[in-house]
Nucleic acid binder design. Structure first.
Lengths: 112, 112
DNA sequence: ACAGTCGGTAAGTCTCTGCTTACTGTAAGC
DNA sequence: GCTTACAGTAAGCAGAGACTTACCGACTGT
């Protein structure tokens, strides 16, 4: 654990892909099997499997084997990592230009 | 505006790149000029310019021309878009397996 | 036991994008 | 006015990754 921001990076990269985001958002309405997920998407079933593997590696989903079926559900871990990172960012962002934002500061000096 | 989740998608994709994230995080400590940003990174200055353009398109940064210098600062718009999307996701995630999480439901029936 | 279904893996292709080296334009200093 | 620094743009290359088809293993039902 470099800092925990590493898992946020992985999760961020995983959700950058539109198809992956679509699958993930689909899981919001509850756990679903792979085939079921594949049926609602334009890409092939193996592609879905690969995407789910990425999401799983990022801690965004969790799978449970039930017979030959494999049911995927949302894992809050990944989402939590992003949220933590985001909150950290927010702090810096506000600090960097909060309500005491003075444009004067920009063209006043060339710093050092 | 499909729903506003579109801008979240762009911002998410922008922050998926490590170099871009590094630049963005660097801006947390205050506005900086392009050359200054380029100096702290392994890639070339033009690469930095390109990355900043992507971040700008995603509403994550804002630039101000000061003479020949171009100062970049964090724009809360993009970060806000991600946060909104994330919050929306959280709702679904909790709903999908909140504290009433019953594994029974998984292997009970094959749905329809 | 055999056929069918479900789903992950392998191997290959093709696009997308991050990076580089030019080059151009613009503002500032002497 | 000429040179020098800053920064965006163009063009081209090379690696990453998203997708496909083909294959294989595992469990289910009759």
């Amino acid at each position: 654990m470099t800092k925990g921001s590493d898992s946020a990076a992985t999760a961020l990269a995983a959700l950058a892909d539109p198809t992956r985001r679509q699958l993930f958002e689909r899981l919001r309405s509850g756990p679903r099997a792979v085939g079921e997920l594949a049926r609602g998407v334009t890409v092939s079933r193996p592609a879905v499997s690969q995407h789910l593997a990425v999401l799983k590696a990022a801690g965004l989903v969790r799978d449970t084997a039930t017979g030959t079926r494999r049911v995927y559900e949302i894992d809050p871990k990944g989402l939590g990592a992003i949220r933590a990172w985001l909150d950290d960012m927010w702090g810096g962002a506000l600090e960097s230009f909060g309500d005491e934002l003075e444009k004067e500061e920009l063209n006043k000096k060339d710093s050092e």
